[in-house]
């Protein structure tokens, strides 16, 4: 029971970290970046290559993966989305799906469709709590998630750049009138989201060590679900949505059915959206005019 809960929270933490990327990009650029899941996959391959082929130490591999994904995020935004800033949201959405297929097929070309065994980057003994084995990976995942949550909350609420991000997310025109570089802020958001995707990729592949070009697709969709579940655009919402989703998935797998677990996860999403269309923490802003 306890071990299921810990596993659920740990899987949910990965979803939460991915969901943060979705939610931040949505908050600023008002677009759903469906290529986000595939950035996770690229992050996984980067850590895999630097560890298995180059033999770099684990921490360096993780940092390398973060740097590559951050740059990749900025490039994707510049090449694919920025030219569509004034276009309809449908055009941007289709482009995002296109970028997603592009990344998957590029990975297919480079690394082939054969699954790669992801190296164990976190080599620590598991912990014994009251007769339950808890893996170090699970604990590190949860810890990483908490740290990221705290840092991001402080960043958006306390720093000048973070506040500017919130201003841009509300009104790009007014933000420009303040002297805020809107394009730069959007780039920064993509950079942060993609860097987080790299961390999520490494954690995900460490917990489930098979790496394929489609590795990022399903977690990407689930994290998107988590972001909507928690209230898209809200940072704590993404966190809570992700963790709840992870717990529901693991418990459904353990007690109901492994095959049906995904169906159950999405059924919960549908129910939440029927009851509360803005998601758990989605805001309905009361505003005087």
């Amino acid at each position: 029971m306890l071990s299921y809960l810990i596993n659920g929270i740990s899987l949910g933490s990965v979803y939460a970290i991915i969901a943060l990327g979705y939610t931040m990009v949505y908050g600023i650029a008002k677009m759903l970046n469906f290529a986000h899941g595939d950035v996770i996959m690229i992050g996984g391959y980067m850590a895999f290559c630097s560890s298995s082929y180059l033999g770099w130490p684990p921490i360096i591999c993780v940092l390398f993966s973060i740097v590559v994904c951050t740059v990749l995020g900025i490039i994707i935004e510049k090449l694919a989305y920025k030219p569509l800033r004034a276009a309809s949201s449908l055009a941007v959405l289709i482009t995002a799906i296109g970028v997603s297929y592009f990344l998957q097929n590029a990975a297919l070309l480079i690394w082939s469709s054969n699954p790669k065994a992801f190296p164990n980057l976190i080599n620590l003994p598991s912990l014994q709590i009251g007769g339950t084995q808890i893996s170090a990976v699970a604990l590190i995942t949860i810890a990483a998630c908490i740290v990221i949550m705290i840092v991001l909350t402080l960043f958006t609420n306390k720093t000048k750049m973070g506040k500017a991000m919130r201003a841009v997310s509300e009104d790009k025109g007014a933000a420009q009138l303040m002297g805020i570089n809107v394009n730069g802020t959007i780039s920064l958001t993509f950079a942060i989201g993609s860097g987080l995707a790299a961390i999520a990729g490494v954690l995900l592949c460490t917990a489930y060590p098979t790496l394929m070009p489609t590795t990022g697709a399903m977690p990407g969709i689930k994290a998107f679900t988590a972001a909507v579940f928690g209230g898209i655009g809200s940072i704590p919402g993404a966190m809570i949505g992700g963790i709840l989703l992870g717990i529901i998935e693991i418990f459904a797998k353990a007690y109901i059915s492994t095959q049906l677990s995904d169906a159950i996860v999405f059924a919960v999403l549908i129910i939440v959206l029927i009851v509360k269309p803005t998601g758990l923490l989605g805001k309905k802003i009361a505003e005087k005019v």
Binding site: R166, A167, E170, D171, M178, I285
Partner: peptide, 19 residues
Amino acid sequence: RRVFSQLSVRENLEMGAYT
């Protein structure tokens, strides 16, 4: 007006001095 409705009054003013 286009104030940033989800930012506090003080944060709105800080944004005014962004540069």
